[in-house]
Write a protein that binds this DNA or RNA. Structure first.
Length: 569
RNA sequence: CGGGGAGUGGCGCAGUCCGGUAGCGCGCCUGGUUUGGGACCAGGAGGUCGCCGGUUCGAAUCCGGCCUCCCCGACCA
C-alpha cells in the first residue's frame, strides 16, 4: 500500500474525546473514526487489523471443532417474546417495524436465532456435540457508550454456541472453547486471565470472563496473590470475619440523637462496625426491598439481584423511602411489616448487634436474628473488597481493573426449554439440549491489543495482527537512484510475500516519516535513502529496537523475512 | 436515568465574563529554498461560531428552548 494514496491521515494531536492510550492512538493513527456515540467506521489500516484478528479467531474456533455460520441481524420480535427477553433486555434492544408493521429487533446476541436453527437441523443425540459460531455485527443501545471501542452500540462479535446431550458433554465443549480463547488472545498479543463471572438472572452455571488487566479497564477484578483465585467484583466471594458467639442479651433501646450512618453509630456508641446492622433500601420491579447486612460489609448488587431473581434493581430514592414508611438513619428489620427483607448471611451469625428502631433518633442494642427479626431471603450478598480474605485460601485479596475480551458461559437448558429445542436420546426420550455460549468482542481485542502494545511514540503491533509486516520509508526522492531503489525494494518485499506499507509521500521531512512509522507501529521498518544507499543498501529496524542494520538492496526482502520469523504473511 | 464538562475551518485551542469586520498553531493548496527524528520563506483556500427562537441599530458573545459529544455514577443476556 502506498501511503500517498492511503485513505486516512495521522494526527499530531489526539481528538479531545479520547482519554485512554488505546483510544487516542486509534484516532491518531487513523485506524477508525467515530460517527455517533458508540458507532465507528474502520479505516483501511484498522480494518486490516480487524480482519487479522477475525482470521485468528476462525482458525482457533475451527481447531476447537467449531463450524462457522452467519445468522441474521434482523430478527422477529416474537422470537424474543418467546424466550422472555423482549422485556428483560429492555432498552438495549434496538426495535423497529417493517412496512407491514411487524415487530423486529436488531440482534444484540443470537441465542434465540441459534436455538431456532438448531431445532430445524437437529432432532437426535447423534448430531451432538455441536459447536457453531459466527463473526457478526451486534446492536445494543447501551445507556452509556464509552472508551472508544470498549463499549459501543454497534460492534463486531464472535459468538459461539454449543449444544450437548448433558452437562458432562457440555463440559468438553466448554473446555475446548476455553482453550481456544486462551490461544486466541495469546496470538493477538493481549495478555488475559480467566476470572469467575456472574452468570446473571438468566441462570446457568459456570461462567468465566477473559480479562486483560489494565488500569483503563471498566471492570473491577478481585485477585488472590496466594492461590490465584480471580473473580469479577460482581461474583467475588470473600471470607467474612467471624465473631465469637455470645449469649443473647435483652433487647434495649438507646437514644441516638442525630446519628444516622453506621460511622455515626460507631463513633457515638464506641462499638466496632461489625457489631452493627446496616439497612439499605432497594426497589425491584416496583416493590421495596429491605436489605440487612452487617455494618462492616457492603452490598453487592449483582448478588442481590440474583438472590431476588430480579432483572431490575435500583436504590430507593428519598421519595420512595418516605412512601414506604422507612425511617432513613434508624431503619431496621426489627418489627418491620409489609416489606420484603433480604439478609446477608453475616447478619445471622452475629449476635447482639446495634440496629435501628424504626423511630427517629433511636436504635436498639442486642438485636439477634431469629429472636428479634427474620428475613424472607438469606444469601451471601456482600461485596468483596481489596484487603478482604480469599474465599479459597484465606490469603489477602487485591483489586485490579480489567477489560473484558471474552466470556464463556454454561447456559444449560434455559433457552432450549423456553424455545422447546428437544432431541431424542438413546432411549427415544425427548430432552432439551444443554447449551453453552462463548463470546469475543473483536473490537475490544483490537483496542486491548493497542493498549497492551504501545510506547510513548505509538503502537507496537504484535506481528500476528500487524496491519502490515513492513513499513518501507523512502527519503530523498530527488536524489539520483533513490526512487528506483525504493520501488525495487517495495516490489521485492511484496514478491517475498510480505505486506508492505510504503511511505512514498513526496516532500516530507525524515522526522515526519519516522514519527508516522513509529505511530503506525509495523513490526519492521525499512529505510531507503541517499544515506542508506551510501552505507550499502537499505536499513532494517524493528519497531521495538533502537538500532538499525544495513543490508544490500537485493538482500532486503530475504533479510526482512528472516527478521520477521515464521509469522510473516 | 442522576451528576459534571464541552460544542468556534480536518485536528488542537483562544475569543464569550464586559455585544461592534472571527483569530492562533498544526494540517491543506501554489511557488521557491530545504531534506535522517514533526524544516523555512512568500502567497492562498477553507468556518451557517451545534440548532431554533428572543433581546438589540448590531449577537460567537446576552436570554429561553432544544440537540449532540465527553467524563463519573446507575445500567450492561
Amino acid at each position: 500500500m502506498r501511503m500517498s494514496h492511503l485513505f486516512a491521515k495521522t494526527l499530531r494531536h489526539a481528538p479531545a474525546e479520547a482519554d485512554t492510550p488505546n483510544h487516542q492512538l486509534m484516532l491518531r493513527a487513523g485506524l477508525a473514526q467515530q460517527l455517533a456515540a458508540g458507532v465507528y467506521s474502520y479505516l483501511p489500516i484498522g480494518w486490516r487489523v480487524m480482519r487479522k484478528i477475525e482470521q485468528i479467531i476462525r482458525e482457533e474456533m475451527d481447531r476447537a471443532g467449531g463450524q462457522e455460520v452467519m445468522m441474521p441481524a434482523i430478527q422477529p420480535a416474537e422470537l424474543w417474546a418467546e424466550s422472555g427477553r423482549l422485556d428483560t433486555m429492555g432498552d438495549v434492544l434496538v426495535k423497529f417495524q417493517d412496512r407491514r408493521e411487524r415487530d423486529f429487533v436488531l440482534g444484540p446476541t443470537h441465542e434465540e436465532v441459534v436455538v431456532d436453527l438448531f431445532k430445524r437441523q437437529v432432532q437426535s443425540y447423534r448430531d451432538m456435540p455441536l459447536l457453531v459460531y459466527q463473526i457478526q455485527t451486534k446492536f445494543r443501545d447501551e445507556a452509556r457508550p464509552r472508551g472508544g471501542l470498549m463499549r459501543t452500540r454497534e460492534f463486531t462479535m464472535k459468538d459461539a454456541y454449543s449444544f450437548d446431550t448433558d452437562w458432562d458433554a457440555l463440559d468438553a465443549n466448554y473446555q475446548a472453547a476455553r482453550a481456544a480463547y486462551t490461544r486466541i488472545f495469546d496470538r493477538c498479543g493481549v495478555p488475559t486471565v480467566p476470572v469467575l463471572a456472574d452468570s446473571g438472572a438468566i441462570g446457568g452455571k459456570d461462567s468465566e470472563e477473559f480479562m486483560y488487566l489494565t488500569e483503563v479497564g471498566e471492570d473491577m477484578i478481585l485477585l488472590c496473590g496466594t492461590c490465584g483465585y480471580a473473580a469479577n467484583e460482581e461474583k467475588a466471594d470473600h471470607k467474612k470475619r467471624e465473631l465469637p458467639s455470645e449469649e443473647p442479651l435483652p433487647l434495649e433501646e438507646v437514644a441516638t440523637p442525630g446519628q444516622k450512618t453506621i460511622d455515626d453509630l460507631v463513633a457515638f456508641l464506641g462499638v466496632p462496625h461489625e457489631k452493627t446492622l446496616k439497612a439499605v433500601f432497594y426497589e425491584a420491579h416496583g416493590a421495596p426491598v429491605f436489605v440487612a447486612i452487617r455494618g462492616d460489609l457492603e452490598v453487592n448488587e449483582a448478588k442481590l439481584r440474583n438472590a431476588l431473581k430480579a432483572t431490575g434493581l435500583a436504590l430507593l430514592d428519598d421519595a420512595g423511602v418516605r412512601k414506604h414508611g422507612l425511617i432513613a438513619g434508624s431503619a431496621s428489620p426489627v418489627g418491620l411489616k409489609g416489606v420484603k427483607v433480604v439478609a446477608d448471611d453475616s447478619a445471622l451469625r452475629s449476635s447482639n448487634l446495634i440496629a435501628g428502631a424504626n423511630k427517629p433518633d433511636v436504635h436498639y442494642r442486642n438485636v439477634n436474628y431469629g429472636r428479634d427479626w427474620t428475613a424472607d431471603v438469606v444469601a451471601d450478598i456482600s461485596l468483596a473488597r481489596a484487603g478482604d480474605r480469599c474465599p479459597r485460601c484465606g490469603g489477602t485479596l487485591e483489586t485490579k481493573r480489567g477489560m473484558e475480551m471474552g466470556h464463556v458461559f454454561k447456559l444449560g437448558t434455559v433457552y432450549t426449554e423456553r424455545l422447546q429445542a428437544q432431541f431424542s436420546d438413546e432411549a427415544g426420550e425427548l430432552r432439551p439440549a444443554v447449551m453453552g455460549c462463548y463470546g469475543i468482542g473483536v473490537g475490544r481485542v483490537f483496542a486491548g491489543a493497542i493498549e497492551a502494545n504501545h510506547d510513548e511514540r505509538g503502537i507496537t503491533w504484535p506481528p500476528q495482527i500487524a496491519p502490515y509486516d513492513v513499513h518501507l520509508t523512502a527519503l530523498g526522492f530527488d536524489k539520483p537512484g533513490v526512487r528506483e531503489s525504493a520501488e525495487q525494494v517495495y516490489q521485492q518485499l511484496q514478491d517475498a510475500g510480505l505486506a508492505v506499507l510504503y511511505d512514498d509521500r513526496e516532500d516530507l521531512s525524515a522526522g515526519v516519516k519516522f514519527n508516522d512509522a513509529d505511530l503506525l507501529g509495523m513490526p519492521l521498518r525499512i529505510t531507503v535513502s541517499p544515506r542508506s544507499i551510501e552505507a550499502g543498501g537499505a536499513e532494517l529496524k524493528r519497531r521495538t529496537e533502537k538500532d538499525a542494520r544495513v543490508v544490500p538492496l537485493a538482500e532486503a526482502a530475504r533479510e526482512a523475512r528472516a527478521m520477521l520469523g515464521g509469522g510473516a504473511t
